[in-house]
Design a protein around this nucleic acid. Structure first.
Length: 572
DNA sequence: GCCGTTTTCGGCCCGACTGTTTTCAGTCG
């Protein structure tokens, strides 16, 4: 699967063209193409074999030929040529805040710099000063940018960003004069990882908001402070920005700061064609310059004559076309969820008893909950032996007889062995209400072997759900490679459901996988994989992934009542 | 380099901030 490789090459080409000072619209074309390739779950080789590359938005005659060339011979001659002209290392320099293509080119041509270390040396010995347009301040900024870059704080998980933004907005909401407050940016779009937390506020007393913000206990360092915009670092070293606007600009500002950039560009292009101009200050009549609207975000979509587009869809991945055609999905909501089906108890590595979990599930408003502990071989996570599993079945029956408002399903998260067989015998699996099968070992297998292994597990008549399909842990390890389309086809064929694991580091299936599942007619469930009670709240994050994957209530089986659910997962 | 219910050629989003400038380039979101 070369999709991401090709996307990366297109992005690199765009960077190289920027350094060359090439046509900005051509550069944008490469970036847009890269962005679109990243969101395609189907193998480009398959699409190419079908002759459909040009159906991909942003891919025309030239780019489709370049993709075909890369698929055929594993390299792209245009890219190789560009790299001969401009050292590839220069692209690293552009990762420094405040250093773009022009300065990268200048430093390379004037001083022969190609690496960040060389640049740091030159800046420290004051050798950048004197170059055209470079004086002391710029040199200092570059050194600061390098220090920040080398500090190397990665991206936050969505779960962390949601939690800290809630704590912060809850505190700021209490300030007199604060009218509205929302998180914006990639957090509002619910991307799986977040670079910095953006918070938007409308208030009649911006000074007070800023003052409170920079003195919050979550703040370690103030990076910048103004009357309408401030930036801080959190205790963990992540950046958090706040912007305060007037109430009548709030909607336009929220749309602007939510993005994505690609979505905003498309929206503004549409606006221009209709004689409007949209900025973060409002919507204006292009001729008269009069302000038409801007207080509500809905105004923008209404004036363009399309339905409101939920933030999770705003990636320019076809949502604008769908809005125009009236085919936007009616996205699943948190309140549609009737159960959490992947929870660990004290029987394996969880912290609570079956009774405690059942009571928590009731508090969550669920109708049922499945307790799915690890299987016997997974010693490290307290895998449950067969004898103990039978005791667990009996305890579950007892809890069910005591509690009337919740149904506890006795399940397992059974390990898929290297050969695709399972870690419990069939007669034991058949006694359980719910069987999730997951891979916890052998991550180095080839894509083909891994796919075959998982598909074999799916063919087992007792397996209802495949847990966290790729095994990735965000910020820690890549998932193993697996042929998603093969798995999804097996899902439809065997009636085995795939899980969206809402554990913040997993989010696996991801948004793109969900969307592909829907396209191929595969159903999913959303589970938290909770090990302690507060982790039941991860359900919000799982629902967010589903929404980014365009899923509707009908696509997600744990929106069903318990009897319909059990019927839906039963295999023929 | 892409794209078209105004166009197959001539368009292609909008504004702020910073630092370096005598009117603007570069960078960012």
């Amino acid at each position: 699967m070369k999709n991401l490789e090709i996307a990366r090459i297109f992005n690199n080409i765009a960077d190289l063209l920027e350094i060359k000072g090439d046509n900005p619209f051509k550069i944008r074309a490469y970036r847009r193409a890269a962005l679109n390739l990243e969101s395609i779950a189907e193998d480009l080789a398959t699409i190419s074999a079908r002759g459909d590359l040009k159906e991909i938005p942003g891919i025309g005659k030239d780019l489709s030929q370049k993709i075909e060339e890369y698929l055929r011979i594993g390299s792209m001659s245009y890219y190789e040529e560009l790299k001969r002209e401009i050292p590839e290392n220069l692209l690293d320099l552009m990762a420094i805040q405040g250093l773009g293509p022009k300065k990268a080119k200048l430093f390379h041509e004037a001083l022969g710099i190609t690496t960040i270390d060389e640049l740091q040396e030159m800046a420290q010995s004051r050798q950048l000063q004197g170059l055209p347009g470079i004086k002391e301040k710029t040199e200092e900024n570059i050194l600061r940018g390098i220090a920040f870059y080398k500090q190397g704080v990665g991206r936050m998980t969505l779960g962390y960003a949601m939690a800290i933004s809630k704590r912060v907005t809850d505190q700021l909401r209490e300030i007199p004069g604060v009218e509205q407050i929302d998180s914006a940016g990639s957090l509002r779009r619910r991307m799986e990882t977040i670079g910095d937390v953006d918070i938007l506020v409308s208030s009649s007393s911006p000074y007070k908001v800023m003052d409170t913000f920079i003195h919050l206990p979550e703040v370690r360092q103030v990076l910048g402070r103004g009357t309408t915009k401030s930036s801080v670092l959190t205790q963990e070293g992540y950046q958090m920005d706040i912007r305060v606007v007037k109430q009548d600009q709030y909607g336009a500002a929220l749309a602007y700061f939510t993005g994505s950039k690609a979505h905003n560009i498309r929206i503004r292009e549409m606006a221009v064609r209709k004689g409007f101009k949209i900025s973060e200050y409002g919507i204006f009549d292009e001729k008269s310059g009069d302000r038409i609207a801007g207080e509500k975000e809905e105004d923008i979509y209404r004036l363009l004559g399309i339905p409101f587009i939920p933030p999770e869809l705003r990636e320019d991945r076809g949502e604008i076309e769908a809005a125009l055609k009236g085919t936007l999905p009616d996205l699943i909501q948190r309140k549609d969820i009737k159960a959490d089906l992947h929870v660990h108890s004290r029987y394996s590595d969880g912290a609570h008893s079956i009774r405690e979990i059942a009571e928590k599930a009731m508090k969550m408003g669920y109708e049922y909950v499945a307790i799915t502990d690890h299987s016997q071989s997974l010693g490290i996570a307290g895998g449950v032996s067969i004898d103990i599993l039978i005791a667990k079945i009996e305890e579950t029956e007892k809890v069910n007889s005591e509690l009337s408002r919740i149904r506890v399903l006795c399940g397992t998260e059974v390990d898929i062995r290297l050969d695709g067989t399972l870690d419990y015998p069939e007669d034991i699996l058949s006694r359980l209400d719910l069987v999730i099968a997951s891979v916890h070992s052998g991550f180095k297998r080839s894509r083909e072997e891994q796919t075959e292994r998982i598909v074999r597990a799916m063919r087992n008549p007792h397996v209802h759900i495949i847990g966290h399909l790729t095994g990735r842990l965000l910020g820690e390890r890549e998932g193993y490679e697996v042929n998603l389309d093969e798995v999804l086809k097996a899902s439809v064929e065997t009636g085995t459901t795939l899980e969206i694991n809402a554990y913040p580091q997993r989010l696996d299936l991801n948004d793109i996988g969900c969307r592909r599942a829907k396209e191929l007619g595969a159903k999913v469930v959303i589970n938290t994989d909770a090990h302690v009670l507060h982790q039941f709240d991860y359900m919000d994050i799982g629902v967010a992934v589903a929404r980014r994957g365009w899923l509707e209530k009908e696509d997600v089986l744990n929106t069903l009542d318990v009897e319909s659910f059990l019927k839906a997962i039963r295999k023929k």
